[in-house]
Design a protein around this nucleic acid. Structure first.
Lengths: 138, 138
DNA sequence: AGAATTCCCGACTAAATTAGTCAAGTATGA
DNA sequence: TCATACTTGACTAATTTAGTCGGGAATTCT
């Protein structure tokens, strides 16, 4: 159970954007250099972030990305979801009728893993980009 | 960020052992069948669980495994640690002096990930094998 | 106009990890 | 002695991760 670079980099980059970009577009190269992240990898991530409406892009010279929403209104959990960072604690097939429902002794652990997932989601949903920027994180 | 089978299977098997094994040794084949887990894989896991003192083994006919500790005294977090399920949310190198300390703007996210890890550990530390068996899990 | 800068996008891949299998052995009880 | 069950190490196929690469398209500066 470890956090992948996709999720970590996406959040790092957005925090950087919220922290250093004051309304003005910030080039990906600048973010990548400051955070020591591979730029072509970041491009992939920002493609998704733009499609999901987290950032807006300006092309050409002096272009870059800006936040499309208020930093206060972007939850960390949303970022991870947008980027495709799984956050999966169970493997029970929800669609299948034979899937585990946590009702029998065989799947006694279902509630445990579901609870862990809920815990994680709750924590990450409770923190916004702005919270991270202003070090309001326990 | 997904939970691997190692951790999941280990907990499933120990819950099964606590639930069905009343002091008497339970053969791995029985646990494996009931939980639909690959037996040779479970063998690997129980090797570690025995070495770390979670279970005791009885060899030969009618042999098997028993819990070496009270089900109330075994925390889920301990099992995952024993088995080698990572539970890593950060990648900051703790040993290196150049490692991230969460003090500069570059690593503003450190506290976030560390907090997530703490949250997960706290949840899993607060639940014992017995809690899972008796469905005392939120 | 042309050059420089920057985003846009899909395809590809090396390396690591996962999720096991397999084979051979040792101990015990019926 | 035979079947059962734990013990242990080596091996591996498949998946996932963590990127790279190459070519394009839009925009602005000179």
């Amino acid at each position: 159970m470890k956090l992948g670079t996709k999720g970590r980099y996406a959040v790092m980059a957005l925090v950087d954007l919220a922290y250093y970009g004051q309304g003005k577009p910030l080039a990906l190269t600048e973010i990548a250099q400051r955070q020591s992240l591979p730029i072509s990898y970041l491009e992939q991530l920002f493609l998704k972030l733009r499609q999901k409406g987290f950032v807006a892009s300006t092309r050409g010279h002096l272009g870059g990305y800006t936040l499309a929403r208020e930093a206060e209104a972007i939850r960390i959990s949303e970022i991870l979801e947008a980027i495709g960072e799984p956050l999966e604690t169970t493997r029970c097939d929800k669609s299948s009728s034979t899937g585990c429902l946590g009702t029998n002794a065989k799947c006694l652990t279902h509630a445990l893993w579901a609870g862990l997932g809920a815990q994680m989601h709750q924590y990450l949903h409770g923190i916004s980009l702005a919270d991270v920027c202003e070090r309001r994180v326990v």
